[in-house]
Design a binder for these strands. Sequence first.
DNA 1: TAGATTGTTAATCGATTAACAATC
DNA 2: TAGATTGTTAATCGATTAACAATC
Lengths: 211, 211
Amino acid sequence: MSSVISKATLGRLPTYLEFLKRQEVEYISSTQIARALEWGEVMVRKDMNAVCGQGKPKVGYLRENLMTSILDTLGVDKNISAIMVGAGKLGTALMEYKGFSEYGVDIKAAFDNNPEKWNERFANGKRIYPIELLKEYCKENDIRIGIIAVPQSQAQIVCDEMIDCDIKAIWNLSAVTLDIPEGILVKNENLALSLSFLKTCMMRNEERNDF
Amino acid sequence: MSSVISKATLGRLPTYLEFLKRQEVEYISSTQIARALEWGEVMVRKDMNAVCGQGKPKVGYLRENLMTSILDTLGVDKNISAIMVGAGKLGTALMEYKGFSEYGVDIKAAFDNNPEKWNERFANGKRIYPIELLKEYCKENDIRIGIIAVPQSQAQIVCDEMIDCDIKAIWNLSAVTLDIPEGILVKNENLALSLSFLKTCMMRNEERNDF
DNA sequence: TAGATTGTTAATCGATTAACAATC
DNA sequence: TAGATTGTTAATCGATTAACAATC
C-alpha cells in the first residue's frame, strides 16, 4: 500500500506539509490547497488520496489527519543519522542549518582532511574529525546517509570511502557525476548546474513561470 | 530551431559538457557517452542531434564541434549578472563559489540588512551592501537574476523587492513557496526538501540507484 | 433536493526507449 | 560489401489533466 506513492507525489509532500502547518482551519479542501500552491486541483486530490484517502465530499480533508499522514509517509518520526565530508563554506552552512531536523535527518558530524579544522566546532557544537576516523564513526553511530561537499578532485574518492563505510544514500553537492555500485542511492545537488539551467531558460524566454 | 530543445535535454547539457571536456579523442560516439554516464544510448543520440546534428555514421561526433554547440545552446558566452540577497553562511558559500562563471553567470554583489556586514568583503573581494541600495544597484548594473538566501520570514518580501527591481529570474534557496507574478521565472532550490526526499526514498528502499 | 467536493476512469502530454532504415 | 553508428518513426511509460460518477 505504501509503495504505490509515486516519486512525483513524494517530492510534493513537504510543500503540502509546509502549507498545512500555516493554516488554522479544521478542514481543508483540495481546491483550497491547489489555489494556494498554484497546482492542478486533480493532482492535489490524487496526492491527498494517495497518502491518506480520507477526504469527505463537501468538506475536504481533516487538516490534522492530513498532516499526520504526510509526516508518516515521509517517515519524519524515524530519525536517520548522516555525516558530512568537507567542512568548507558550503559544508559549514549545511552543518549549521536547522531545517533538516524537521524531516528527521540529523547531520551528526563533519570530516575534513585539513588538520587546522579538527579542533574547531560549528556554531551548534557539532565537531569536525579527521577523515581517517570516518569508518569508525559510521560504524559506531549507525550512519546511513553521507553528504559530499568537497572539491571536485576528491568527490569520487570520498564517495568510495562512504560506500566502504556501509552508507546507503549519498547527497552529492559536488559537480562530479559519481560512479556508484548498484543498490546505493544518489541524489545529485549540483548548484552550478541549477543556476546555469535557470539562466539558460531565462535567455530562451521560457513561457512557464514555475518549474 | 533553437526552441525545439526540451527542458529535459537542456538540463543534461552541462553534464555532457563536463564529460566531453575530460576526453581527449577527436571523435566520440553516442554509445561511448551513454556508457560513461550510464544513460540510455538513444536518449544521448537524440540530445546530441538536437544541439548539433552533425554526427557521422560509423565515427560519431567531432568532440570539439559538440562542445561548441553545447556551449552555444547554453549561452555560456553571453554573460548574465546576478545579485544575492542574504549574506549568511549559505549566501557566503555561494558568493565565493567559482563554478558559476563557467556557465556565464556572475554574482556581482550581496545585500544584507545587518549593518555589521556592510564593511565586510568576501574572499574574492565582492561587496555586501545595505538592502536599501538594491534597486539603484540593479538599475546601474543590468541585473537580471536575483538569488534569495534569507530566512523564511523575509523571503517573500525580498522576492517582491527583486521584482520591483526588474529582475527576470529568481533562484530561491529558501524553503518558502514564493508568490510570483506571470512572466517571472523561479527555480526553487530547497535543500531541506532535497535531503528529506533522499531520506524518504532510502527508507522506502527504492530500487533505482540514480535519480 | 441541490451543491460542493471527493475519487475514479479515460485522455493527453512529455520524455524515454525500442525497432529499424539510412549512411558512410 | 559488411559493419558500426546515426537519425527517425513508433511504442511505451509515468505523470498530469479532463470528464464524470459517487457521496455527503
